[in-house]
Deep mutational scan, measured.
Amino acid sequence: INASIYDEIQQEMKRAKVSQALFAKVAATKSQGWLCELLRWKEDPSPENRTLWENLSMIRRFLSLPQPERDAIY
């Protein structure tokens, strides 16, 4: 996982035409506020920051699903 995940998140929300609230809920079981802060600060993903790493790993797993599967989840 690297910093490009933040751009991938924004691209996916645009592509699927979903809100931050919906993306946060389905991709990371988090709130819109959490995702907003995540995208604002764009912390460097590092395994040392375990909570951030685990949350980004969950999002990465969601983004790695085939597009039709992600669309069905939304």
Rank of each mutant, 00 (worst) to 15 (best):
L35S: 03
K14W: 11
P47C: 08
L65K: 15
A3C: 11
S64M: 10
Q20M: 11
R15C: 02
T51M: 12
W41P: 01
I9N: 03
L22P: 09
W41S: 13
T29K: 15
A27M: 02
P66A: 08
E12H: 02
Q11D: 15
Q11I: 10
C36R: 13
P47S: 09
F23V: 01
D7W: 09
R50C: 11
K14M: 09
T51D: 05
E48F: 12
Y6S: 00
Q67C: 08
W41V: 14
D71T: 02
Y74F: 07
N49T: 01
E48M: 13
R40T: 11
S64Y: 04
S19P: 09
S31A: 06
L56N: 05
E37L: 06
S31G: 12
T29M: 12
P68S: 13
C36V: 13
P45C: 08
D44K: 11
R50W: 12
A3D: 14
W41G: 13
L63M: 04
P66G: 07
T51R: 09
R15N: 04
I5Q: 00
A28K: 02
Y6Q: 00
A21I: 04
S57H: 05
S46M: 11
F23R: 00
A24H: 01
I1N: 08
M13A: 00
V18G: 05
Q11K: 08
N55C: 13
A27Y: 02
W41F: 13
N49L: 05
T29Y: 10
I73D: 04
L35C: 03
K17M: 09
P47L: 09
E48I: 13
L63F: 01
I59E: 02
A3M: 14
E69R: 11
D71M: 03
A28M: 08
L56P: 00
L22W: 07
L38E: 03
R70P: 03
W53A: 06
A27I: 04
K17L: 05
L52T: 02
L56Q: 07
L65M: 10
F62A: 01
R40E: 13
D7R: 12
S57F: 12
A24E: 02
W41E: 11
Q10C: 08
R61E: 07
L38S: 03
N55K: 09
P45W: 00
A21Q: 12
E69Q: 10
I9Q: 02
A3E: 12
G33M: 14
K17H: 14
K25N: 09
P68D: 14
E69G: 05
G33I: 13
S57P: 03
L22A: 05
L39H: 03
F62N: 04
K42W: 00
Q20D: 05
A27F: 12
R50I: 14
R61Q: 11
E48L: 11
A28L: 07
K14Q: 14
I9K: 04
T51E: 12
S57W: 12
S31C: 05
Q67P: 02
S64L: 11
P45N: 02
A21T: 08
Q11G: 13
R50L: 11
L35R: 00
F62Y: 04
L65R: 12
K17N: 10
A21K: 10
R60S: 12
N49K: 03
P45E: 01
S31E: 13
E37G: 05
L65P: 03
L38W: 01
I73S: 10
D7N: 11
L22R: 10
R40Q: 13
P66M: 04
F23G: 02
D7P: 07
A21G: 13
S46Y: 12
D71V: 04
E37W: 11
E69S: 08
I73Y: 15
R50H: 15
L52P: 01
R70Q: 04
S46F: 11
E69T: 14
Q11L: 14
A27R: 02
I9S: 01
E37T: 10
L35D: 03
I73F: 12
M13E: 01
P66E: 11
S64D: 08
I9E: 02
L38G: 00
L39C: 02
A21S: 09
I73K: 14
V18Q: 03
G33Q: 07
Q10H: 15
V18R: 00
C36S: 13
E48K: 15
A72C: 03
W41A: 14
A21N: 09
S64N: 14
S46T: 08
E37R: 08
C36A: 13
L38A: 08
Q10K: 09
Q67Y: 04
D71S: 06
A21E: 14
K17R: 12
V18S: 05
T29R: 13
W34K: 03
S4W: 06
L35M: 07
I5R: 00
Q10P: 03
Q11V: 13
P45R: 01
S4R: 08
T51L: 09
R40K: 14
Q20K: 13
S57R: 09
A24W: 02
F23A: 00
R60A: 09
E54R: 11
P47F: 08
L52Q: 15
R40A: 12
L38P: 00
A3F: 15
Q32W: 07
R15V: 00
L65A: 05
L63A: 01
Y6D: 08
L63W: 00
N55W: 05
W34E: 12
L39M: 11
E54L: 09
A72E: 15
W41Y: 14
S4H: 12
N49W: 01
E69M: 09
Q32A: 13
M13S: 03
Q10I: 13
A24G: 04
R50V: 15
V26L: 08
M13K: 04
L22Q: 06
M13W: 01
S46H: 15
R70W: 02
R61A: 14
N49Y: 05
S19N: 14
V26P: 00
Y6T: 02
R60N: 13
Q20C: 04
Q10F: 02
L52F: 05
R40D: 08
P45L: 00
P66S: 06
M13D: 02
F23T: 06
Q10W: 03
L56G: 00
M13T: 03
N55M: 04
Q11S: 10
S57L: 14
E8V: 04
T29V: 11
S4N: 12
V18N: 05
R40W: 08
R60E: 08
L22E: 11
A27H: 02
P66K: 09
R50K: 15
